[in-house]
Write a protein that binds this DNA or RNA. Structure first.
Length: 569
RNA sequence: GUCCCUAUAGCUCAGUGGAUAGAGCGUUGCCCUCCGGAGGCAGAGGCCCAGGUUCGAGUCCUGGUAGGGACGCCA
């Protein structure tokens, strides 16, 4: 399918060149030509303000420039008419005949509708979720899952070969706490009065794992230490996370274990590289520390840590990479991990993170810079928080406190399609208030049903067509009317919406477009009937052909959002 | 204190430097025998404040104000 703003822009560029060659316009470098869908249908379908932009360069009035451009505009099958409007706009109207026949073009593309080759031959990587296996997946992480997977689907739609990656850490202090907590829960389940470790995980889910463990191994583990329990907890919890993601329609191609960076020595190689470039040094406190910080560190008896001189790259202070104990903080392996990503040679890298990791990624970017990589090649999408409401009440919680609602419970309650839609339909930059009551509502307050119902209605038409044995192949599409054309105009905008959504890595654009398209569909469906006593058979066949294309459009949109396209509801 | 995000209709949100700023819910009035009423039509109603850049600013810049988040030798 054509991406119409681009097609129109090409025509304008050619027209300007021809006008310049003919001496109608003075020579100048042509700036990028912007063409947008016109906001007022009475003015046209697509519009460009290029003449206003060029007025200065051409040293003529915008209207004169527009006239010169329009005079030299080459013909194109999709252009019906070109007009000039007051301040200097060039307005295009689509050729109605061409528009009606786009029905066949849509059907010819099938489920690959609006697949593009922008990313042909290029490899993209999307890293998302990346939750450590310390508890069930909660709603905040789920937003990252939905965003990351939707971005991956979009990249695939424009032709990239996409790898989905999950980075995790199953070592370190947090995992030790997990093991120790499970051990305590296990002993409690056996009837011992074992206290939970300080800063342990209070969540109920570890009780569940402990009880299942008792049922499985009895009391044979009571003399085991925490590593055995950590191993078990990790296995069970990772199983939960994978299952939750699977239910949500999210799969990862690569699970990257932080530990492998130690096994290959990458972590220490990274540190050496940073030392060589002068970005690492040993000291008890960072170089820019004030008196108070120094006193505190001395009082605490701090030994030499290895610091990352990030303040030289715009940070407010330097960061510890290796603690005095010799153990690295997350900073060092994270930098090593991203260096590894860069070395794998992706053309495009996307990292989806929650707002609570906003500071962390900056340190990683500075680390990459210090190593000589170009950090702008890594696109970081930081999404804001998700708040869950039930009955108008905010539900709060953290994994540690354990009073969080696991994703599985939310999916049980509202269904996976609703979870995906509500987490997708907002720009990543804004908070999401997830209203469980609304998401579960089976009425038109719930946009999920509104969009899916458009597909259901199309499917209904074809059930009826099968009964009546009507065939739409070869239908005369010139019999389509204005309402159908309005719908086709909207559908043809899909190319530019997808292009823009990919450029901005903003998949919520797709959700909005789907909603808009459904809003255009339902009134039309009401008036444009296929099976009606007053509709002649040839018109009925043309409309049937049209609804076949409409069904495909909704199926494609829902697929891009990772949602199902139901036949009945 | 520093950094990040946000501020658009009564509410929840779109809006890519261009024309008269869009949708859903709510609200007011109305319509609909027929492909599933989980419907449709119409109306009222809005860019936080002050500067700046631009032929043109909801959009870009600076400074405020208000709300959310992050600022560990935790990950």
């Amino acid at each position: 399918m054509k991406i119409l703003p681009q097609e129109h822009a090409l025509l304008i560029e050619q027209a300007i060149r021809v006008a310049q060659a003919a001496g109608d316009l003075p020579p100048f470098d042509i700036p990028p030509v912007r063409v947008k869908p016109a906001d007022n249908a009475e003015l046209g379908d697509y519009a460009s303000p290029i003449a206003m932009q060029l007025a200065g360069l051409a040293r003529r009035s915008p209207l004169q420039v527009a006239e010169s451009i329009v005079q030299h505009m080459p013909a194109a099958p999709f252009v019906g008419s070109v007009e000039i409007a007051k301040p200097g706009f060039i307005n295009f109207r689509l050729n109605p005949d061409w528009l009606k026949h786009q029905t066949e073009a849509i059907l010819a593309e099938g489920d690959a509708l609006f697949t593009m080759d922008i990313g042909r031959g290029k490899r993209a990587q999307v890293e998302f979720v990346s939750a450590n296996p310390t508890g069930p997946l909660h709603i905040g992480r789920t937003r990252g899952a939905v965003l990351g997977d939707s971005i991956a689907r979009l990249l695939e739609a424009v032709g990239y070969e996409v790898e989905r990656e999950y980075y995790f850490n199953n070592a370190g202090r947090q995992m030790e706490m997990l093991g120790r907590t499970l051990r305590a829960r296990y002993l409690q389940a056996l009837g011992h009065s074992e206290p939970l470790p300080e800063e342990g995980y209070a969540g109920e889910y570890l009780k569940d794992i402990a009880e299942a463990l008792v049922a499985e191994v009895g009391d044979t583990w009571q003399h085991e230490d925490w590593p055995v329990f950590k191993e078990h907890a990790e296995q069970v919890i990772f199983g939960w996370i994978r299952n939750s993601l699977l239910r949500l329609g999210v799969r990862h191609d690569v699970f990257f274990n932080e530990n492998s960076l130690y096994e290959t020595g990458a972590v220490w190689k990274t540190l050496e590289a940073l030392r060589r470039s002068g970005y690492a040094y040993d000291a008890p406190v960072w170089e820019g520390a004030d008196e108070e910080e120094r006193r505190k560190a001395q009082a605490a008896g701090a030994g030499d840590a290895v610091w990352f001189r990030s303040s030289e790259l715009g940070d407010e202070k330097d960061r510890v990479m290796v603690k005095a104990s010799g153990e690295p903080t997350y900073t060092l392996p994270d930098i090593a991990y991203h260096a590894n990503k860069f070395d794998r040679g992706f053309d495009l890298m996307v990292n989806v993170l929650g707002a609570d990791h906003g500071t962390q990624y900056k340190t990683v970017q500075r680390g990459l810079q210090a190593l000589g990589y170009d950090p702008s090649r890594l696109h970081v999408i930081i999404h804001q928080m998700v708040r869950i409401y039930r009955g108008g009440e905010l539900i709060k919680g953290s994994t540690r406190a354990g009073d969080v609602i696991p994703l599985d419970d939310v999916m049980d309650e509202v269904g996976t399609d609703s979870v995906r839609y509500f987490l997708l339909a907002r720009s990543a930059n804004t908070d999401v208030d997830f209203d469980l009551d609304l998401a579960v509502a089976q009425n038109n307050e719930n946009p999920v049903y509104y969009i899916q119902n458009a597909h259901v209605r199309c499917a209904g038409i074809f059930r009826m067509a099968a009964q009546r044995d009507i065939d739409d192949a070869g239908a005369d599409l010139s019999l389509l009317g204005e309402p159908e054309m309005a719908f086709l105009r909207q559908v043809l905008r899909m190319g530019e919406v997808l292009t823009y959504a990919v450029e901005e890595l903003a998949p919520h654009q797709v959700a909005f477009f789907a909603g808009e398209t459904a809003r255009l569909f339902h009134p039309m469906y009401d008036s444009v009937r296929v099976f009606h006593s007053e509709v002649p058979e040839d018109v009925a066949r043309a409309r049937l052909r049209f609804y076949r294309a409409a069904r495909l459009v909704f199926r494609r949109l829902l697929a891009l959002m990772g949602m199902s396209a139901p036949e009945v509801m």
